Amino acid sequence: MTAGPSALQPRNAGIDLLRGLSIVLVVLHHLGLRFPLKDGVLADWLPRGVLNALIYNGYEAVFVFFVISGFLITTHVLRRDGGLARLDARGFYVRRATRILPTLTLIVALLAALHLLGVPHHVIDTERQSLGRAVLAVFGLHLNWYEGQTGYLPGGWDVLWSLSIEEAFYVAFPLLCLAVRRERWLMLLLAVFALSLPLTRAALADNAIWQEKAYLPGMAAIAAGVFGALLAARWRAPPRAVVWLLATLSTAMLASTLLFGVLWWRWIGNGYVLVLTLSTMALLVALQFDERRNGAVPVPRGLRWLASMGRLSYEMYLTHMFVVFVTVGIVGAVQGDMRWAVLWYLPAVLASWALGAALAHGFSMPVERALRRRWLAR
């Protein structure tokens, strides 16, 4: 998923773990669409509902990423500039561009090359779509709209829809902050926007793809993260027992929407996504309060792998579909009984982690540092 602040800035271990969990859910989701657990050997022992809960919440995980993104970026703006009304717009845009654009450009170039070479699962071959138009949609921040109008693109392109929402939000964000200036009015606007999520999703029900990828619901999730960051920064940290209770309750609510989203949907329809975003926001606020009270908490040794995935979530998000399609090819070639395809889940997740790490350390981070030294020094 789209990156928050770079790895060079201070990190909250709890937030990294949440990001790690979210990217694992996204990878599992895209594997599950190709190798459904309900059709495999696990269905002999586990109910279908449990199996579906494990792999069919990648969309919800993207909304968790949206909330985290808004929270992290706002937190760092507050620390760096002292307030949203004093936001350094040029510095903000440079940081976003240097974090997002180099890696995105590399991935789009690779996807274009695979399309031109005719590599299976990467060719844009529907009547209303073309390579040039897909590239324009990516960098014009409307790939989500393009898919809503023309249908799904191949998987490697399709995952880029969330970037269109997120970066369109951040193009407007500094302008809004500098225009409104009064923080209480800005928080009111953010609260209204965040709470509008069920209404905007419901209004788009006639187009399933557009409902899933539209700007307003995704931006509402980011707005929830921004609002949460402002709350965490302006409120005095409550007693430890209150922080613990907030973290426990928000974690329980978040887990329930990820694991039992179908039940939530039956109860409150599109409101279940709002429960997801608000519980994520509340958990982030609790984690921030805990850090202010106790300082930076190290990641438990047994979960360092998950925190590492969280730190690499942007690179993993952009590249994991390459691993998914390679896995599809390998399984098709060597796996006779598709009921055992579940055995490839773990290798695919680990390969996605390794590919994301290679991209981050070999390209994304060095290029980001070099560009920021050049453009932020001016």
Rank of each mutant, 00 (worst) to 15 (best):
R234T: 09
L254S: 11
R304I: 03
L160G: 03
W185K: 03
V326L: 15
P300N: 07
L258V: 09
A134W: 00
T74R: 00
R96W: 07
L110D: 07
D290P: 00
F169P: 08
N12E: 06
W235H: 14
W145C: 04
L160I: 13
D81V: 05
A241Y: 03
A255H: 02
L17T: 12
L230H: 06
V299M: 06
L258F: 12
E166K: 01
L204Q: 13
R378N: 10
L276C: 08
P154G: 04
G140L: 00
P102Y: 04
L178A: 13
G148D: 08
A247D: 04
R48W: 13
F63E: 06
N270V: 07
I165F: 02
L258W: 04
R48E: 15
Q9C: 07
G362I: 05
V67G: 05
E167W: 08
V171C: 10
L188K: 04
S162R: 05
P47H: 10
H29I: 03
Q211G: 08
P217C: 02
I222T: 11
V331W: 03
E60G: 09
V342L: 14
L306Y: 01
L84F: 03
V159S: 09
W45R: 14
W265M: 11
V119F: 05
D44T: 13
W185C: 06
E167Q: 13
Q211V: 03
S313G: 11
G261A: 12
R378K: 10
V326Q: 12
L87R: 01
A172K: 01
V326E: 12
P238S: 09
L188T: 13
L274K: 06
L110R: 09
C177I: 02
W375V: 01
G269W: 02
W45E: 13
L141V: 02
G261P: 06
A341L: 06
L141K: 01
H361P: 00
L359M: 14
V62N: 11
S364F: 03
L303R: 05
F260M: 08
L160W: 05
A89D: 04
V192K: 00
L231F: 02
V62M: 11
A348P: 04
L350T: 08
H30G: 12
L160E: 01
L8K: 14
V108W: 10
H121S: 14
T277A: 13
G4T: 14
V119E: 03
V64S: 03
F260H: 11
L245M: 08
L104G: 10
M338D: 13
A172P: 01
A168T: 14
G14M: 09
